[in-house]
């Protein structure tokens, strides 16, 4: 394998979630985090899972990432059963989860070092290329604690993308950032998604964020977690979160979400 192959984007995978149920056993009572949830995410599609906290959207993301196992039902990526975490599915968390004992470049290299059939030189080349993509080349040798919150999430994005996954799972990755930094990252993420099309599953409780980023938005309601509505977002890209069309669509979805929550008395 050469660096060109490595930088050439892997074909995005098709995800299928088939009648998945997940129960967390508690001391006093069991919590049904997901109840009989099914969905399909197409190759290269950007799907946002939207809902209030406790609706099971993060649970579903963890199942897709392979970090947890369902109690019933199956999850597959390109027809293959998801049985555990793996580098075909990169994950970005709300916390940056970068390793403080490594510098910026070494963090990006972490996943690459676990890929066989690559020379060290190629790995470094790939890491450099991704730091360039997220605009952090000048900070290649910085320590993590020297970076701002937004820069840390950029490194986390580079680290998730560098091993060239087919799927990118993002769990509220921008929720802890200030509004201005967040808006910059919306632009960057859309640009990156245009260049390197991934199948993206993006969890958020921010309706506008979902409308701004997603090709499709799935609405969750809690207790038990279910998908209750689906919105296809056909607005042209790149989208701006302050755009009137985005705001209007977000209002429609918010109204629907409130109606659903009220109907279920939660």
């Amino acid at each position: 394998m050469t660096i060109e192959d490595e930088l050439h984007n892997a074909a995005p995978a098709k995800l299928t979630v088939d009648r998945v149920t997940k129960v967390y056993r508690g001391k006093r009572q069991d919590v049904k985090a997901l109840d009989d949830v099914s969905l399909t995410v197409g190759e290269g599609e950007f799907v946002c899972l939207l809902g209030p906290s406790g609706c099971g959207k993060s649970t579903l993301l963890n199942l897709i990432a392979g970090l947890e196992q369902p109690d019933a039902g199956t999850l597959t990526a390109d027809g293959e059963l998801i049985e555990g975490p793996g580098r075909q599915r990169g994950v970005m968390f709300q916390e940056h989860a970068l390793f403080p004992w490594l510098d910026v470049t070494q963090n990006v290299l972490f996943g690459l070092n676990l890929k066989p059939n690559l020379s060290d030189e190629d790995r470094r080349g790939v890491a450099r290329a991704f730091l360039e993509i997220v605009g952090l080349t000048p900070f290649a040798n910085s320590g993590i604690h020297e970076l701002s919150g937004g820069m840390k999430q950029r490194v986390a994005l580079a680290r998730a993308l560098a091993p060239n996954p087919q799927v990118l799972c993002m769990d509220e990755p921008f929720a802890a950032l200030d509004a201005m930094t967040r808006e910059q990252l919306y632009d960057d993420l859309q640009k990156i998604q245009q260049q390197r099309r991934k199948t993206v599953v993006f969890v958020t409780h921010n309706v506008r964020e979902a409308v701004c980023l997603g090709d499709r938005v799935l609405l969750f309601t809690p207790r038990p977690g279910r998908i209750r509505a689906e919105f296809r977002i056909d607005l042209p890209r790149p989208r701006n979160i302050n755009d009137v069309a985005v705001a209007q669509l977000a209002t429609t979805i918010t109204t629907e979400l409130k109606r659903l929550l009220k109907a279920e008395n939660v």
Partner: peptide
């Protein structure tokens, strides 16, 4: 150790001795 380190490492294929 914050559990998130272990999870992040697992998603990149790190396990066992690594």
């Amino acid at each position: 150790i914050p559990p998130i380190y272990r999870r992040a490492a697992a998603t990149m294929g790190s396990k066992g001795f690594h």
